[in-house]
Design a binder for these strands. Structure first.
Lengths: 108, 108
DNA sequence: ACAACTCATAACCATTTAGTTATGATTTTT
DNA sequence: AAAAATCATAACTAAATGGTTATGAGTTGT
């Protein structure tokens, strides 16, 4: 529930294979390790290790069912990255805030 | 200004020291390598190398003036990360659509 | 019962990474 | 002119990373 550190999230998503796995999970929904291995183009243990890293960042959840483990993406775990982008991009944050205010006004 | 690859941006921001440097540059504006070194808590060559990585991701620009080099952040170079988030993080979509529009404006 | 399947972990390896000190090029100060 | 300052690069090192094959634990199918 409590979000993983921004550091874990940034680290996890720095690797293209891991991003691809995360993308695949958000696109296709829940997948077994076997299915992800077919997709990822690396060995099954490599996939398992990537999933461990994603798990540490809380970017995926897993559910054991018999001999297979189903993984699913948790896009809300991107929050620390989103926060970072909006918080430390001070340059744009002001404008973003102004834009939001503007949009709110336009909506009413 | 064709944007750097998403990979470069993700990689560059995966390191906490590099994020700190980028944050400092957005907060305080243009800084010399010397100033950044005082701030970063690592050696000057380490800072120079981090700046090289940030440069490759187009997250910073530099301007030589005499014996010092001034670096500044280019927050618009975060666009590939924003794109990625908005595309694959359906959860955040609405928020980021607005942000994307903003970034497009900033680039022109 | 046993063979096949699914997955995580261990053990290992090569490369990359993030740091260091040393040095040299250039510019400024005295 | 000499000294000091600024910065990038080179050379090096330890640790982290991303991959592999081997293996073993648990589950399912025959």
């Amino acid at each position: 529930m409590t979000p993983a550190s921004a550091n874990h999230v940034f680290r996890a998503l720095a690797d293209p294979t891991r991003r691809a796995i995360f993308e695949e999970l958000t696109r296709q929904g829940e997948q077994t390790v076997h299915a992800l291995t077919r997709y990822a183009g690396v060995s099954q243990p490599a996939v398992s290790k990537h999933l461990t890293v994603l798990k540490r960042a809380k970017l995926v959840r897993h559910r054991r069912q018999g001999r297979e483990t189903h993984y699913r993406a948790r896009p809300d775990a991107l929050a620390p990255m989103v926060d970072w982008l909006s918080h430390y991009g001070a340059f744009w944050r002001d404008r973003f805030d102004r834009l939001e205010t503007l949009l709110e006004r336009m909506e009413s």
